[in-house]
Structures are given as C-alpha cells and as structure tokens.
C-alpha cells in the first residue's frame, strides 16, 4: 500500500471514529404522509451540529429520530437506520430507556416538572439507578447546575418549584436535568425560541461550553444562532436534506442555491 493510500485510510478511520451518530436513508411517515425522505446525515463527536430550514422541513422530525422520541407518536413510522457509536438504535434489542439516557433531549418550551429544582434534577439519575444516597444526589444536583451555569442563581432555593424560575432559568434547568443523567449526546429542539435575547445569549454560551464533553445537535430557526454555536450545519427543505457541511462554509459559500437563499433571508 502506498503511503498516500495509508494516510487516506488512517484519515478515514479517524473520521469514522469522530462520528457519534449516523443516519442512513432515514425516512419518516406520519400515517400516510411522508415527512422525511432518505436523509443521510452524520453527527460528529464533541461538536455542535445545527439543523436549519423553514418550518415543516423535517428538521425536528429528524432530531426526534435520534433518541426515538417519535416512538411516543402512535402513527409515526421510521424507516432506515440510525446508529449511535455504530450500533443501530432501531434494532429490536435496543432498550429505549437506556438509549434516552445516552441521548438526552431539551425541548422548545422550557418544561420543568412541577416539582422542586432539586427533584427536577435528580429525577433522571434516580430512574436510571445512578444515584441512591442523599450525598450522591446532592453531588449530581450541584454538578449539573454548575455545568448548566445555574448554580449560583438557584443554590439557595433548591427546594422551591422549578416552575417559579424565569423562562431562561427554566430552560437552563432543563439542560441541567438532561446533563444530570450523563448523556453522550444532547438534542436541542429550538431551545431558545421561547427566550428573550439575554437568556438566549446565556444558553448559547452554555451550548458552546458543553461541546467539550458532549455531542450536541440543535434545531434552530435563527441563522445567527446556527452560525454562532455550531461547527456543522445541515439544511433541510420539504423533508429532504439539501446540504450539509462546515458551518463556516455553509454560511459563506454554500453549494446549493436553496441554502444560499434561505440563509440570506430570501425565503423561509
């Protein structure tokens, strides 16, 4: 084997190992209606992948395929293959509970449980048996809140209801709640759409910090947000993946006309 070929193979291997999740020919049907058409998309480890596109383009649907949240919708059917570290998460022997512990999710609207801040955070670790003693719980609460940048704001009122926090704080609490189960991937479905610009800035900052330890996939309607926080961007339109690539390239020199129009605000 020539040196160049070896190098290429090594590169490919490195590239392969850098891939956390991979969707292959993913199609999604809601009843008769097809919402996603043969999407092939890789999610790289320790990076932020942004999914952009106009409303109804299938980006949220794809996101929900990554931890099988679509399972909760009766009429939803998923074809194709989604792998996590090379393992098909739609394989019959996969335990959804375990999958979701590894692939956490943060939703569009902050949805803290109507429980105390403390209870909100220990909820996940407790159902997965990751904590049992009081000391372990205290530790996981503190660690998660610190990582979510919320600890200093709420440390004196951990027993107060999570619903009493402001919108931005609630969303960071939801991120803390997701981090608490030590996931490998965090999916975020328009996490800032219900927040004001200041809260948004804080969450974006947080996403950037979290990238060091986690793989993040974020759906967003804000081009600026995608440009600010992500390293990779994927553009969806009408259920098709139009283009994907490095964020820098996507926002400066996209290959596809559609992407360019969308990014520059000419449609969508």
């Amino acid at each position: 084997m020539s040196e160049a070929a070896t190098e290429k193979a090594v590169d490919a291997a490195i590239e392969e190992s850098a891939i956390k999740m991979r969707g292959t020919d993913v199609s999604v049907f809601y009843g008769e209606k097809q919402a996603l058409f043969d999407v092939n998309l890789d999610v790289r480890k320790n990076s932020v992948t942004a999914l952009i596109g106009p409303s109804g383009c299938g980006k949220s649907t794809f996101l929900r395929c990554l931890n099988r949240m679509n399972d909760t919708i009766d009429i939803c059917r998923v074809n194709g293959e989604v792998t996590l570290d090379g393992e098909n998460i739609y394989a019959p022997m996969i335990d959804v509970v375990e999958l979701r512990a590894r692939v956490g999710m943060v939703f569009q609207k902050p949805n803290p449980f109507p429980k105390s801040i403390y209870e909100n955070i220990v909820y996940g670790p407790r159902i997965h048996g990751q904590v049992s003693t009081r000391a372990e719980m205290d530790e996981v609460v503190e660690r998660s809140l610190i990582k979510a940048g919320l600890f200093n704001e709420v440390k004196d009122r951990l027993q107060e209801p999570g619903t009493g926090l402001s919108g931005g704080q609630q969303q960071r609490l939801c991120i803390a709640r997701a981090i608490a189960v030590s996931p490998e991937v965090i999916l975020m479905d328009e996490p800032c759409s219900a927040l004001d610009p200041i809260a948004t800035a804080k969450v974006e900052e947080l996403i950037d910090e979290l990238r060091v330890n986690y793989t993040i996939v974020i759906v967003t309607h804000s081009m600026q947000q995608a440009a600010r926080v992500s390293q990779r961007t994927a553009m969806f339109h009408l259920g098709y993946l139009v283009e994907e690539g490095d964020t820098d390239k996507m926002f400066t020199n996209p290959d596809n006309k559609l992407t360019q129009d969308y990014i520059t605000g000419r449609f969508g």
Binding site: N67, M69, T72, V96, V97, E98, L99, R100, A101, G104, M105, V106, F107, K109, N111, P112, F113, P114, K115, Y123, G124, I127, H128, C174, R177, A178, V181
Partner: peptide, 27 residues
Amino acid sequence: VPQAMRDGSYGLGATQSETIKQVILPA
C-alpha cells in the same frame, strides 16, 4: 397535563409507568 411534561420525562429515559407515577399523577 401538558404533553411537554410527558416529553420531558420520556426524553430523560423514563418508562411510561415511571412517567405516570412520578410526573403526571403529582401534576
């Protein structure tokens, strides 16, 4: 009880009965 509560719980890997017992019924 808002669907968001269920999503939040399922998203953390809770089973259906865990979600009902610990999130939906208290709410």
